[in-house]
Design a binder for these strands. Sequence first.
DNA 1: ACTTTTGATGAACTATTATTCATAATATGA
DNA 2: TCATATTATGAATAATAGTTCATCAAAAGT
Lengths: 211, 211
Amino acid sequence: MVNVAPTRKEREKLVHRTEILQAALNLFSSKGFHNVSMQDIAMESEFAVGTLYNFFQSKEQLFTELLNDCAEKIYQTLFPILQSNLPENEKIRTYIRVHGKLAEDNIEFIKLYVSEYSTLTTVPRTATEKAEKIKAELLIELENTIKAGIRKNILRCVDARITTQSLSATLQSFILESSKDFEKAKVEKELAEIEKLFLDVLLMPEKHTNV
Amino acid sequence: MVNVAPTRKEREKLVHRTEILQAALNLFSSKGFHNVSMQDIAMESEFAVGTLYNFFQSKEQLFTELLNDCAEKIYQTLFPILQSNLPENEKIRTYIRVHGKLAEDNIEFIKLYVSEYSTLTTVPRTATEKAEKIKAELLIELENTIKAGIRKNILRCVDARITTQSLSATLQSFILESSKDFEKAKVEKELAEIEKLFLDVLLMPEKHTNV
DNA sequence: ACTTTTGATGAACTATTATTCATAATATGA
DNA sequence: TCATATTATGAATAATAGTTCATCAAAAGT
């Protein structure tokens, strides 16, 4: 019975899978990997423990899947911006600004990603592999963007790697902070300040040598 | 037997306590709270499990003590700089630079602090309380320093809070990165770049309007 | 209507681990 | 030297949690 179109049963199964993932995301993002049991996830998702194991080999695999989805989503939002053909300063501006929407749409995801990614130690290494790779790719692309901007004389001659890491760390820190209790207006105001801060350093001094 | 001077026995007990804390620090900083058992700490410190409980009420308390010591040490290094009577730009310069020595002297501490502090979730809340309070105090003091600098026309009129958080996040990110494998020269070079980056934003534009 | 397949179930199994406590070792002071 | 106090010990305990599997329910196919 190899049908291309998914049957109702198959669709339902997929829904169930998603429900489990959603429940797990809620729990993991607020309590962390080690403080959430499979029992907890079963309760939250209203399935039995055994059912979870029909979908995922292990707790670790379930968590990994979540983290990867999460990293993927962030990647899909940020990477295209850097790949676009905007001028470099606009790329960076947009890159910073889009973090507002990112935070708004995926608070849970962000919490999971930002709170568990940095500490290699708290979560099984294998779980963070893909997420780390994605993060590294983004950093490289951001660094390349800055370098390109410098070559084209759009940006000042700063240390691209340090600036990249600094901007990245700053955005992460703010997005984590904002996820504690999200207020759209506040986040956007802060991002505007971050934009000002970094573009001030990055932009060629033309009109803004004085405040 | 209420003696003021500690006897040899008492001194030895203190040494044992310190040995246990050191062993725990090694393990926690490389594996994280949840991946280290009391058995592990007992093995590493060459004491029996029961002995650990003669010194510390619980695993959590042992961890908390470590984290607090750690936060205290960082605080003792950084706070005096901001409290000194250097001009504000020099305070900030020194604040940044001293992170090199901080990293060099206390890699384990830094790893523990930076890897466990940010994620409120992975470790019992009570354990991070004091460390967080100390961190908050440092941030406030740094922000006040920037504000003072602005008032005195030493620093440009930036958003003090955002700049503070950005600098803080940047330093943390770099110090965590450097703790993976510490190279003094590299760290100092990077800190010099960070200094340049932030002082570029902060300093009044006098001689350096152009590169 | 009956068989088969698929998915759901949760009690039971196993492993891990924080914690305790009766006992042993050692030092102290008389 | 002996009694007492202090510290160290590690097997035993109890609780938690990841995982399995025999069983059940329901839908699909004939």
